[in-house]
Design a protein around this nucleic acid. Sequence first.
DNA 1: ACGGTGATGTCATCCACTGACATCACCGTA
DNA 2: TACGGTGATGTCAGTGGATGACATCACCGT
Lengths: 188, 188
Amino acid sequence: MGRWEPDAQNRLREAALSLFADGGYERTTVAEIARAAGVTERTFFRHFADKREVLFDGQARLQDAFVGAVTGADHDAAPLAVVAAALDAAAAHFPPERREFSRQRGRIIAANPGLQERELLKLATLTDAMTEAFRRRGLAEPAASLSAHTAVVTFHVAFTQWTAPDEQRSFVDLCRSATQELRALTAG
Amino acid sequence: MGRWEPDAQNRLREAALSLFADGGYERTTVAEIARAAGVTERTFFRHFADKREVLFDGQARLQDAFVGAVTGADHDAAPLAVVAAALDAAAAHFPPERREFSRQRGRIIAANPGLQERELLKLATLTDAMTEAFRRRGLAEPAASLSAHTAVVTFHVAFTQWTAPDEQRSFVDLCRSATQELRALTAG
DNA sequence: ACGGTGATGTCATCCACTGACATCACCGTA
DNA sequence: TACGGTGATGTCAGTGGATGACATCACCGT
């Protein structure tokens, strides 16, 4: 047993989400989150670059999944097939038991412009990383950018649907149907 | 003559840009900007919602130009023609004499992630406003969103080129050629 | 002459965030 | 067993962005 309770980062994340859901993002101070997690404010900022980041740090693993799928795809796979593989890899991060968490998080973000800003930045960063991965596969511009955008936009659309109030379908299914819709649109 | 020098907002904007360019965005305090403009820090926050906003408040007029062009277009004009009209209206905001200003502003934004966040939010807001304008023309989804995205992405691409170091072409020309490229891509 | 208005100043305060330094359980090693 | 290094945390002081409350006073219309 360590000198302190282990897993401070997780405790901070959970305390933050719960306090944000209760009292709103702005009215919750970092000091309150830290106290709820049993650490000091200073420790919060050792685990998260800023107050917003406590809601977004999972993005790193998601990005690894996306990029890993692109990098690991067959060398001669068509770009759209690679996009589909990346979406499947991403979908693994969103099992049914995580849906309620994602809904709560989505409500918090929707209520705060600053958090929406951060979300846009994360999506843009993800798109850049994907563009780079497609380039490493030998794809030229603008095909690399377009493929990356396709993957990220499709993911975003599917994720938004997945967290909608009465939505029942699985994340994988929503990705598939978003892909189908896009295919139909661009074929027109 | 007023009790104070007129046009405090412009003085603040200009002082901010010049100080940011000199010493960097982060190392410049709002108090310094206010002092350079001959007002107090409190007055800065009466003109701009936050420190970042001093670099982005022109966006409101740009958005009006975009939306106005969509609203004022012929009732039976094709979506792509409306997009072109919106781009022409936007281009009027970027005459040659504004290019150096835009380049400087671009360098400041490129050096600071927080400012990039804000830029993404502005583009997203613009896209939403355009989507709404297209809807009011009777366009259904997803055509409304796609048209809005087309306009905003094209604008962004052209603007980025326009502020590139050695670029000579006019903003209108860059919009036209970006539109052509997109047309070629989607026709493929 | 006079009261209303609006842009600004002044002051106090909150809170996000950072740097510097101290603490101390744990772990590997002599 | 003793001992020195390591890493996660605590403590403390300070900076700067942002906001609310209230005061000031040139200007303007009546």
